[in-house]
Design a protein around this nucleic acid. Sequence first.
DNA 1: AGATGAGTTAACATATTCTTAATGTTGGGC
DNA 2: GCCCAACATTAAGAATATGTTAACTCATCT
Lengths: 220, 220
Amino acid sequence: MVDDEPDILEFLRYNLVKEGYNVLTASNGEEGIKIAVAEVPNLIILDIMMPKMDGVEVCRQLRNRPEFDRTVITFLTAREEDYSQIAALDVGGDDYITKPIRPRVFLSRVKALLRRSERAEVIEEPDVINVAGLIIDKERVTVTKDEEVIELAKKEFELLHLLVSKPGKVFSREEIFNKVWGTDVIVGNRTIDVHIRKLREKIGEHYIKTIKGIGYKFEF
Amino acid sequence: MVDDEPDILEFLRYNLVKEGYNVLTASNGEEGIKIAVAEVPNLIILDIMMPKMDGVEVCRQLRNRPEFDRTVITFLTAREEDYSQIAALDVGGDDYITKPIRPRVFLSRVKALLRRSERAEVIEEPDVINVAGLIIDKERVTVTKDEEVIELAKKEFELLHLLVSKPGKVFSREEIFNKVWGTDVIVGNRTIDVHIRKLREKIGEHYIKTIKGIGYKFEF
DNA sequence: AGATGAGTTAACATATTCTTAATGTTGGGC
DNA sequence: GCCCAACATTAAGAATATGTTAACTCATCT
């Protein structure tokens, strides 16, 4: 959420946090872009009227990056300046919310927008994930890299699929065991390492990163 | 509610019970801690002036336990000894109420504090904290500064995360040990310094400030 | 039955993180 | 301005987590 007025930012953040949302705020366009790029949020709320870089410009710059292709972006705008609506939607905005803001209305609007973004993600889920030059095909249980088809064993694939499902997130060993092996199977504690090894052998060394003492993550 | 004077205890209890609150009382610090640990109340009221273990000390000991992280703690203090206020809030107190106590004022104060604690419970800790140009991401276990991703070791991250969880608050060494290392591990007293050093090396020198004789704090 | 390959284990190697200890530096009371 | 306790710094090595390899089990296929 990007707005240059601290009061509005704080007011909206309070309401969102109360509902359980995880909110990141920035008070100007540049900072907003920096945070957005670092975190790739599900929903971006931009005030249109801001000094230096306005919300429309922020939106345009974000939309130029492929990772914000499907991110829902909405604007905050004063009722009067309805001309801005056009520019805002032109530039790739999904919605706009007019000030003055009524908390209940605002929250239900946010909820609706996030539902939309979730749906978009769910729809895109189909069996093939394409990240960082890897095409991960759930149906064929294969990974394609540089036109080359790599066959993975079931456990290897499941492990990779889990890590890739949230790129950047660190999965703890416990979490991996629970999600790939299930809660009832008990295996030795070197098992994951061996699978990680085989995965790295097959897809390349630099995709899966070890965070010592915490777990593993997939990264670009 | 902990107070060594039975009359005050009885007077306040009477008023609170009349309003429908469930009150537990103790007449000294040790007993207070014992009951608090057993019951984990929503609000803790501590008289500062008590023989043996005073309220500030009780607060300090409670704050060292993770289960009292978010419990609202308030003090009772005679108006004159306002110096105690400083120590009280330093040590993790949320508020202080001055004697002599006016029942109506006292009750509205308690009500306000309990409202605060309710809110605090609902708010789950965010996974991403954005302060002073640092984006601290618990899920990815990274810190981003000026578009640059900084990798921290586990302990370093935990230490930073603790300090950043309350920017400006001074964390005593004892508190840091208890929250980052846990109460059962015993390590030498230069260990924290070394970790602080490494943190400062990685994120920059001016974020973590030493308060000699007291502890460390995160500041902008 | 024998071959095959996935999954697991165990033993040992390696690497990073954490801690220690020795020594240097600071800041506030006197 | 001196002194001392509290902190800073550094490098070395202890502690741990992970990496690696090879061998073993077990099901499946031929």
